[in-house]
Design a protein around this nucleic acid. Sequence first.
DNA 1: TGCATATCTGCAAAAACATGCAGATATGCA
DNA 2: TGCATATCTGCATGTTTTTGCAGATATGCA
Lengths: 121, 121
Amino acid sequence: MPSRIPVAKELAEIFKALSHPDRVRLIEELRGSEQDVNTLAERLDLPGPRVSQHLGLLRAQRLVDERRDGRRHLYHLTQPEIADWIVSGLDFVEGRLSTLNAETLEAARRLWAVGGKQQSV
Amino acid sequence: MPSRIPVAKELAEIFKALSHPDRVRLIEELRGSEQDVNTLAERLDLPGPRVSQHLGLLRAQRLVDERRDGRRHLYHLTQPEIADWIVSGLDFVEGRLSTLNAETLEAARRLWAVGGKQQSV
DNA sequence: TGCATATCTGCAAAAACATGCAGATATGCA
DNA sequence: TGCATATCTGCATGTTTTTGCAGATATGCA
C-alpha cells in the first residue's frame, strides 16, 4: 500500500517548513495577531529580505497567508491551532538540553499558548 | 527576552529530524512496536545503510532508541505519543493537495493512530 | 576458526538551503 | 511627477543534506 507515501511526503514538507528557528519564531510572533514584515523583522532582529523570504516559504506551505494594507504586507496564520500544535511539541523538547531549564520551558509554554486557550489537538 | 530563542532552536531541530519522508515513515513503522533495521529497510524499500543513517539521526534527536538482540538492532520510539502528535499534524495537511483525496488522508489517519488510542496531546 | 548475516561508518558527488546584498516593484504623499 | 517607504526577487557564495557505494565491525553458527 504505497498510498501512505504521499502523505508522509506532505507531512515532511510541513516539518521542513518549520525546521528553521527563524520560521518557528515567526509563527510564534504571529500566534496572536497579524503583523507586517517590517515589524516582524524588527522584533526578530533580522534583515527584511530574509523575513520576507521565510514568510514566502511558510506561505508556499499554506501555514500563513498575506493581505495588503497600503504598502504594508500583513501576515497571519492560516490555522491558528498550528501554534497549539507546536506548543504541544514542547513535550518532546523536555529534558533534552541541560541548557534548557524548566523555567525557560515553562515560559515558552505560556508564551506560545494562544490567549490561554486550551489545546485543541 | 532572548530566552525563547533556544527553545525555537530546539523545536526547529525536532522539526528538521522529521523533515524527511523516509524518517516520517520510519516513525510510522515504529508506532506500534520495535523493529530491526533490516525489516524496516524491506518494508520501506530502502537500502539498509540509508535506514541506518536515518535512524541514527532520529536517535541523535532522542526520538527513537535502540536495543540489541543478538546481531539485530531493534529500534523503538522513545515517546510513543509522538506518533499521536504527528497524526494531529495531518489536520494541516488536509486540503493541501488535490492529489491527496479524503480517503487517502483518512486511511493515513487510521494507520497512524496507535492502536486506536485516543490522542493525548 | 571461517563464513554468513546484520548493521554501521566513511567518502565523494549531487542537490537543497541559508545568507547577504543589489536592484526591482509598488504604494503614499508632497 | 518625484521621492521615501515597504517589500520582493534574483544572484553568488558557503554550508548542510541526501544518496550510493565500498569497506569495517560485530554476532551466531558450523
